[in-house]
Design a protein around this nucleic acid. Structure first.
Lengths: 240, 240
DNA sequence: TATCTTGGCTGGTATGGACCAGGCGGACGT
DNA sequence: ACGTCCGCCTGGTCCATACCAGCCAAGATA
């Protein structure tokens, strides 16, 4: 093996990706309904074939960012539409125009118990990161969350301070969840939960359990207990 | 205007549609993982350009029916995966292997109040079907549901008895919801709800509100109140 | 026999040309 | 002043060709 084989993965930018990202940056600040560059215009600007431009636009149309109207042009599609999907607490609170905060109550490596081990698809006793946070929105206490992370996938995850957004930290490691299994139920607050959430024991709470999968690997298992008066889950589902 | 202009809209079958449907029929009986015809094979078979074949296969890949593997071929994808989506109470209970039952407490045409009118996107005072049902799973009381239906879209809906499954009845009229907006929260049972659900007033309940859209028209708005000890919402979400 | 090379397959990217139908506005004729 | 028609622009469809990278098995080589 000579040096020539030790190439940096210098992926030469694909034409259609260049065009796609250029258009994406053009339209992301545009209001819905405004016109995107025409296909032939992009052909001239980038010096590429029209099929290449169409491939780029197809991707954006597929993402729901653009809308084609034959005979008229290509336009920025209506607002996010099916927004807020697969979001974390931080992202969800921000989306509602509030300021998310997070106070770590506990962050340590534990040995997985049988329940957590099964949920994370590891063996009981394997190391897991247990991270308990009290979460606020605009200063008001909203929920307490216990997250269990597969330590093997996240070496030294909590060494350099605790990130604000778990999902953003996972994304930075290429482990952003792409699929989740959630369960949502109502229950009574335990004495411990009530103390943390500043409510009375037995008050209604919303429980949310999540198993998050990234690239076929289970990266996060969490259980969250919400004050019933400060949080509602909103969902948009579509059959396709 | 002569007769030549009065053409039947004889849409000559588009090539890529022909190829797409042919491949669809080929693969719909195949087990996941089996190979689909290669692109060049389809080019030869249909006498079309490869771009056309790719356009056809792109559509099927987009539908999740096919999966491309560079250097290997195109294969029938794993089954839909994301099962049980956009289901009604009846379907959801059946999916859990229990027997759903429904007892109509109220079924009549009312004048829409301001809240329901806004949710149904009609004017206050317009006629709406109000249908309240007590719902059971394996005989056990689970929830009470208030559904409001757009009377204009469903003439004589409750005339010939009340259907068991609302969604199946809607499907029979081509109005099965394709998109829904849900909100889920925890709360305390009101005195009336508690009496119906055979629990104590103030006990925790899970509230579920839904706006269901079919073909761009809002067909159903409902509010459901679940006993916290007998129902949990399960969800599978995926980013795409 | 075990390893290496190679060529034939796959899908992925890209070019450049061609024609169609539909939206739309300006030029034209009434 | 008004309506019609035509030409330009748009995206939609389709063709023929070319080269790339990855997979894989068969044949060549050590």
């Amino acid at each position: 093996m000579d040096q020539a084989d030790v190439v940096v993965p210098r992926q030469r930018a694909l034409k259609h990706v260049q065009v796609r990202e250029h258009v994406r940056s053009l339209i992301e600040a545009q209001p819905p309904g405004s016109a995107a560059p025409s296909e032939r215009e992009l052909v001239a600007r980038f010096g590429v074939a029209r099929m290449t431009v169409r491939q780029a636009l197809d991707a954006l149309v597929g993402e729901g960012l653009l809308e084609r109207i034959p005979g008229r042009g290509t336009f920025v599609a209506q607002p996010p539409k099916t927004a807020g999907r697969l979001t974390s607490f931080t992202e969800e609170i921000r989306r509602r125009g509030m300021l998310p905060e997070s106070q770590t109550l506990l962050a340590r490596v534990e040995q997985a118990g049988p329940g957590v081990a099964r949920a994370l698809d590891i063996s009981p006793g394997d190391p897991v990161l247990h991270w308990r946070r009290l979460r606020r929105a605009d200063q008001a206490v909203v929920c307490v969350e216990d997250a269990y992370l597969n330590e093997v996938l996240l070496p030294g995850f909590l060494q350099h301070g605790t990130p604000t957004s778990l999902y953003e930290a996972l994304a930075a490691r290429g482990l952003r969840p792409s699929e989740v299994e959630d369960s949502i139920s109502a229950d009574r607050a335990s004495a411990e939960e009530a103390a943390i959430l500043e409510i009375a024991a037995g008050d209604p709470v919303l429980r949310h359990a999540r198993r998050a999968v990234s690239d076929g690997r289970i990266v996060e298992v969490s259980r969250t207990c919400y004050r019933h008066d400060r949080f509602t889950v909103y969902l948009q589902l579509a059959d396709r």
